[in-house]
Write a protein that binds this DNA or RNA. Structure first.
Lengths: 104, 104
DNA sequence: GACTGACATCAGCATGTACTGATACTTTCA
DNA sequence: TGAAAGTATCAGTACATGCTGATGTCAGTC
């Protein structure tokens, strides 16, 4: 069966530090220095996670002198939100109808 | 900062087999035998994953003779969907406003 | 009561993951 | 032009994760 939600994206967001980065970037475009300061993570650890987010296609980079700005791709989050909304609606309707398959 | 989405729940759903189980249960209440048949997973592997879903508070169990039925808790999925919807809206508004913090 | 079916639990193993420290590369500054 | 700042990459390590096979427990059947 086709998955209802993209598990590769879920795995990327399931890490607390990466989710924090995504949440910060949802509010404003920031550079690596900003993100180190806001998250308290070490610079190389943050870079590792930023690479995971880039590879997952969730953020774009934007050089600015020797700073690198990261910008979230809102459509990726919107797509995930849509998938969860569908799953939630299906679950709600099923609970309301109390659908239960017979014993085998 | 408080997380925008529950990463413990995300980690639970980030596994393809567990997400498949949740998707099947979103459509109807099923027993372990049904789930083995629908997913093709081995019985002990499926039981391991069902335990993870129970421990995460995503499903309830319902004994029925020697069968065990699993019922999805729709409010858990609805809550996650709501969290993603908020994150998506924040991201969309930020992209529209083109918010970018100045260089440090 | 023995047997069968359904399913939960557990230990072991292979693989994946997240962090650290070291280091390389690029840009800017003095 | 060399030093400093910013950031990316990499190897190593410790821990987490997912699967398997074996096995235990409980409900139903004969």
């Amino acid at each position: 069966m086709l998955m209802s939600v993209d598990t590769d994206l879920l795995r990327v967001l399931a890490d607390p530090l990466r989710l924090q980065i995504v949440t910060l970037l949802a509010r404003e475009t920031l550079c690596t220095t900003h993100l180190v300061a806001e998250t308290g993570a070490r610079q190389t650890n943050l870079s590792n996670h930023l690479k995971v987010l880039r590879d997952a296609g969730m953020v774009d980079t934007e050089p600015c002198g020797r700073f690198t700005y990261y910008r979230l791709k809102p459509d990726v989050i919107a797509s995930l939100a849509g998938q969860f909304a569908e799953l939630a609606e299906t679950a709600r309707a099923t609970a309301a109808a109390d659908r239960k398959r017979s014993c085998p």
